[in-house]
Simulated assay, not measured.
Amino acid sequence: MTSKRISGAELDLKVNPAELSARQRQALLAGLNHAAEETRTYAVELTPKDRGILRASAEVSVDPVELEAAISYNTTYAVYVHERLELRHRIGEAKFLEKAMIAKAGDIEAIVGKYLEKVFQ
């Protein structure tokens, strides 16, 4: 069994990754990708917008070896904007990715679960 903790959201997978078939592994990766994309979409809505560069830089990556998905922002200032609570934004807010992870925690588990249900039946 494996459990992953991600910025306030925990996904408890009741599977042993070493025992997954190729088909089950592919389903898990597809579910992780789908869940991460849903979370990225919500995080972008919360991301502060000046010219839109930060929002446009959000991307999802899935590691097929570690069976993990990540959402990242590809700008030099993403961490600064995310962490600085005292900054005021006309559009968006600080802690945009963290808030999205917390808000979508239940959805993440449900999405991944649906992908796994299909191959474990």
Rank of each mutant, 00 (worst) to 15 (best):
A18W: 13
E19Q: 15
L20D: 08
L20M: 11
S21K: 12
A22C: 05
A22L: 11
R23M: 08
R23I: 15
R23S: 11
Q24P: 09
A27I: 04
A27V: 04
L28V: 02
L28P: 09
L29N: 08
A30E: 11
G31H: 01
L32H: 02
N33C: 08
H34G: 05
A35D: 05
A36N: 10
E37V: 14
E38C: 06
E38K: 03
E38D: 07
T39A: 00
T39L: 00
R40T: 09
T41I: 07
T41G: 00
Y42Q: 05
E45L: 09
E45D: 10
L46I: 02
L46M: 06
L46H: 13
L46R: 13
T47H: 01
D50M: 10
R51G: 08
G52D: 04
I53M: 05
I53E: 08
L54I: 02
L54K: 06
A56H: 08
A56N: 11
A58L: 10
A58D: 11
A58E: 08
E59F: 05
V60Q: 00
S61V: 00
D63N: 13
D63P: 12
D63C: 07
P64G: 03
P64R: 10
P64W: 01
V65R: 06
V65F: 10
E66L: 15
E66F: 11
E68N: 05
A69K: 05
A69H: 07
A70W: 04
I71G: 14
S72Q: 13
Y73T: 15
N74G: 08
T75S: 03
T75L: 03
T76S: 15
T76M: 13
A78Q: 13
A78R: 14
A78Y: 15
